[in-house]
Amino acid sequence: MIRDLGLHLALIAVLFVLGLTLPDYHQGNMARILVLATYAVGYNVLFGYTGLLSLGHAMFFAAGMYGLGLVMQHGGWSPVPAFIAGLVSAALLSVIVAVLALRTVGVAFMIVTLMFSQSAFLTILYFGTWTRGDEGFVIPQAARQVAGLDLTDPVTRYMAALALFSVALLLVLWLVRRQEGAVLIGIRENEERTRMLGYNVLSHKILAVVMSGTLSGAAGAGYALLFGYVGATFASVQYSIFPLLWVLLGGAGTTIGPLVGAVFMFYLIDYSSGLTNAYMLIAGVVLVLLTLFARAGIMGEVRKRWAPWLP
């Protein structure tokens, strides 16, 4: 327990130092990656720990993003209450989705979440008068200030992103070290057995969906606030696939995996796009290679080979 906490605090400390020392370009990238990694951390709660594969998480990310963006744009709210509005929207949506979608399992769950998310995406377009549809809208620099802190300043923004990520990371660590976390893993490994042992499987699954959805929404709200853009693209299918990829690459069911996966994927595309226009080809080949040689993902392999104690 102490070792876990120490490891995660050390990781946060390293990220903190990186925020002060990285060159401009990479500091900017890492700020963005930390927000996206928060999204992946949220996704991991459901997929990695509970074993439920959702193809619709973009709707939660978008709920947070639009929850914050719309009240700032049309209501003139300040960032903190707007952020809370984003969290509340994502939490509400995830409760509704949990109650309906958890009636299904396996591939049907994938499809139901996918279709809910697709409806959410189309709804954003349908109400284009306020959402400006696919084009989206910009949250002006002047509005992105919290208590005298300018969130558009690179260092401040990085630290805000790090704070968001750290809260999500420690929350998940706390969860998996509690009994609830153990039950979630139990559901992943053998749902029937967990039920036999007397645990309420459904309520734990609902907990997982809501926590996962709300964390994803926090990431969406964070993205809008820190990078000043709200758009329907973030509600599209590909943004549901991204966290799945990051988590699988980094290692599903590991606390640190989502960050590792997001960093890996970002720099893979960023670096290979400098070499060739066919960077998607490289990304494809790397995915295939990972499938063949590191199936548990990066942190999953680390845990398997060297550090079985990793949470």
């Binding site: 696919d134 989206g136 809208f137 949250i139 990078f227 000043g228 758009g231």
Partner: peptide, 14 residues
Amino acid sequence: FSHVVYGSAPAAGE
């Protein structure tokens, strides 16, 4: 594409 313009313009301004 205008959604790319909207997404990128804040970064350019900052």
